[in-house]
Amino acid sequence: MIEGFINNLPMITILVHAAIPLTIILVYALVAIWGERKIAGFIQDRLGPMRVGGWHGWAQSIADLLKLIQKEDILPKDASRFLFRFAPFMMFAASYAAFAVIPFSSSYIGSNINIGVFYLLAVTSVLTLSVIMAGWASNNKWSLLGGMRSAAQMVSYEVPTIATVLTVIVVSGSLNLMTVTEMQSGNDILGFLPNWFIFQNPFLIVAFIIFFISILAESHRVPFDLPESESELVAGYQTEYSGMRWAMFMLAEYADMLLLSLLGAVLFFGGWNSPFGEFMGGPAWGFFWFMLKGLLLVFVMMWIRWTLPRYRVDQLMHICWSILIPLSFINLVLVALWEVIFN
């Protein structure tokens, strides 16, 4: 009904479709930054932010945002002015644009195109470009090293990510994320398990592990946070940024985390499908389940972040090129074989 209404007004349609993911990202970023600090605090036997806003410092991120808005926008003297200013926006735009094909609920998807996954992977590779841009434009040696590392890392890790996404595509036979999700409805496996892809095929569990490791690297999370490894490169490509421009990087990073986690939820954990079949189904619950799955993956990423040391740059490459990539392609073949034999 609502769709029928907004479809008649194209401008409003576009605006609404643009505003919904943006709202989700912004609210999520505020919550996630606070949540990450709380989780870090609890893991480290601290309490994290406690003062702003009363209950457990819930307004801390808002206060930080206000602070960042007021900060001076510093532009280094010898920086490449245009690139330096443009990089953070490009980075955010890349991760924001990718949200268009994420099926948030059974009745809402930004753009129901039939090459959704392809589009998503294509758009997120722009992130690499913006990181290099930021690293180069800052005219700072640390930034440059960070940018170089990140270029190598993100380009490499896109390969296993895509290979594992392909394994799911082999099973589903569709690039449309809505279709992929719909295929995972119902509770038929062993009589009670939901029809999620991760339960459908043992090799998809391996695929998920590879996928998860790769998205850790794609979104610069520990143990692969080399581009901004604070104990080596000060802050990597973000070194020269301050105020809102830096906040854009932060926002993009968190958005990227959510995006890739949601992609994982769609591909392996049934997207907006309820784990209890029809119980607690429907569009609204669908949104709830979907976000829950995504946020759980985000939580695991944070949990890992506060546990592990980080890899070195050559080890990172070694893991990617000599372990993950061969493994993911072997896995792809095995999944395909399984599909041919059993289905």
Binding site: F42, D45, R46, L47, W303, I304, W306, T307, L308
Partner: peptide
């Protein structure tokens, strides 16, 4: 080894805090 480490941090996640406000 990663899971051992994550087990340790998980235990601490629900443990009491040692700091004072």
């Amino acid at each position: 080894s990663i899971f051992t480490g994550m087990g340790v941090t998980m235990r601490h996640l629900f443990g009491p805090s040692v700091t004072l406000q």
